[in-house]
């Protein structure tokens, strides 16, 4: 593991860098730090933003100095043990891959040389780590997509993508939690409300959790749309 580095972001934030490359280990470690910071309630620290291989910590320099905060963070990280990681949460997200919900499926099949059934089977048989959330509220940057279903982004992004759309963009796959413009190739849609501002946790999952896509029929999609939408979460011991 590389030494962590602290980068200043003005007078009220620092970015703690764990590694220069994307790695599951670095990502696990920074989510551990995020949890520790939240638990410690360090006076003067307001919140954190975990990313691929770094975490940005926001603070009030009139309440805690950067030097003091860096020392505190270094101490918290030293408590990290591989086996101490919390059990992983896997969110089972139902996705309808049928034609009406998958405008780019034919293109993805053409670009990958796979059949529709193969694309669905490959896409729905991985537990994807949520490295970070960004771009839009709840938009997950997922790691671990099978390279066989990689497909380049659209040359011209769509101006409107519906809420819940599931797409592939290059080496990544993800969900659009709210209607938005975007350039990923759409291969399905979930009826689950990933974003609901009236919930205590407006976004269903957090960075550091895992997502598994579960194929459903169009009839199931309609049945689940607008229903309270209980979604299944499995807790599994950490790897």
């Amino acid at each position: 593991m590389e030494e962590i580095r602290f980068l200043p972001c003005g007078d009220s934030a620092i970015t703690v860098v764990f590694s220069r490359e994307m790695s599951e280990e670095a990502n696990r470690k920074l989510h551990f730090l995020a949890a520790q910071i939240e638990r410690e309630r360090i006076p003067g620290v307001s919140e954190t933003v975990p990313a691929f291989c770094s975490i940005t910590v926001y603070f009030d320099p009139l309440r805690i100095s950067r030097i003091k905060l860096e020392k505190k963070i270094s101490r918290l990280i030293r408590a990290y043990r591989e086996d101490a990681a919390a059990p992983r949460r896997v969110f089972l997200i139902p996705v309808c891959y049928e034609d009406a919900f998958a405008p780019d499926m034919a293109d993805v099949c053409r670009l990958t040389g796979l059949t529709k059934e193969e694309v669905i089977q490959i896409h729905s048989s991985t537990d994807y780590l949520i490295y970070m959330l960004g771009f839009l509220p709840g938009f997950p940057y997922l790691g671990g997509m099978d390279p066989r279903i990689e497909a380049p982004r659209l040359d011209t992004p769509r101006t409107a993508i519906p809420e819940g759309a599931v797409g592939i963009g290059g080496k990544q796959t993800g969900i659009y939690p709210l209607a938005s413009p975007g350039g990923w190739r759409l291969i399905g849609q979930t009826p689950v409300k990933v974003y609901d501002p009236t919930r205590n946790m407006p976004i269903l999952y957090r960075a550091g959790d895992y997502i598994r896509f579960c194929p459903i029929s169009a009839a199931e999609f309609e049945a689940r749309r607008n229903s309270a939408g209980e979604i299944e979460v499995r807790e599994e011991s950490a790897v």
């Binding site: 972001c9 003005g10 860098v17 933003v49 691929f52 770094s54 975490i55 940005t56 926001y58 970070m132």
Partner: peptide, 28 residues
């Protein structure tokens, strides 16, 4: 590799001219 953004961050995209990130910025 995308990382967190603070208010007032001076981003330099490929065009080379600065964008100062304000209240409604993306978080990363």
């Amino acid at each position: 590799l995308s990382d967190g953004i603070a208010t007032g961050a001076v981003q330099i995209p490929a065009s080379g001219t600065p964008i100062i990130m304000m209240a409604d910025r993306q978080t990363t």
